[in-house]
Design a protein around this nucleic acid. Structure first.
Lengths: 111, 111
DNA sequence: ACCAAGGTACGAAAGATTTCGTACCTCAGT
DNA sequence: ACTGAGGTACGAAATCTTTCGTACCTTGGT
């Protein structure tokens, strides 16, 4: 029951185009924003995100995030764990994760 | 001959989703990478980028960049100028432009 | 006044993406 | 061994994007 790591790209092979395409989708970005906000980087269940889409579609999006190299997926057979690849992302694209939190409210400062 | 500024979103209204969708396209990202690399932020002609696509498609992409708030377009009637909105982008999404240069070669450092 | 170069508008074709229905798999608990 | 919860595979519909053809506009130079 150790859980099988599903494969994604190596840390060095992270591709900016693939990453940006992954982050361009609202649902995937919502997941990434939540993950980036949790500095403990603990593993999370896939259904701990409150996505308003069917489970088949969730499978599709989590796979897209994994194939972009943004998360690890751990397959336990009848459930799945998700973990942010923070170190790999920070090494290759420093500051990217911080941007995901930057669209919080309260940015309406007068210019 | 002053040139008319075509409208884009206000600096405060830059939206991360729109920005990431704009940057997800290879051609648009190539333009942005070139613009981000030139620290003088001088105005450039639209055909000074070596895009392997028709001019109608270029019109489409430059418009997408403007509507995302990433560039200003200045219409001179029979030609058009492009300028990076560096300050606005940096204020709202600090570090984003730096990421565009991060996919240069030479990142193959041993881990 | 004409023309050529650069650009846009509109519309259509081609290609990608997102979404979900149906069917099936895997494990935990009974 | 059965069931239920969580997840995947495959395929199809809907939607969105990218691309370009045709037609037209604007300016500068002849």
């Amino acid at each position: 029951m150790a859980g099988k790591h599903l494969v994604g790209p190596e840390a060095d092979a992270l591709d900016l185009g693939a990453v940006l395409r992954a982050l361009a989708d609202e649902h995937r970005r919502a997941v990434m924003t939540e993950l980036a906000a949790d500095r403990s980087d603990s593993e999370r269940g896939c259904n701990s995100f409150d996505l308003p889409i069917s489970k088949q579609t969730q499978t599709h999006h989590f796979r897209a995030l994994r194939e972009a190299g943004l998360i690890d997926e751990i397959d336990y057979g009848n459930r799945k764990g998700i973990r942010l690849r923070r170190a790999d992302i920070e090494r290759k694209f420093p500051g990217l994760l911080a941007l995901l939190g930057a669209e919080s409210p309260g940015d309406t400062a007068p210019r």
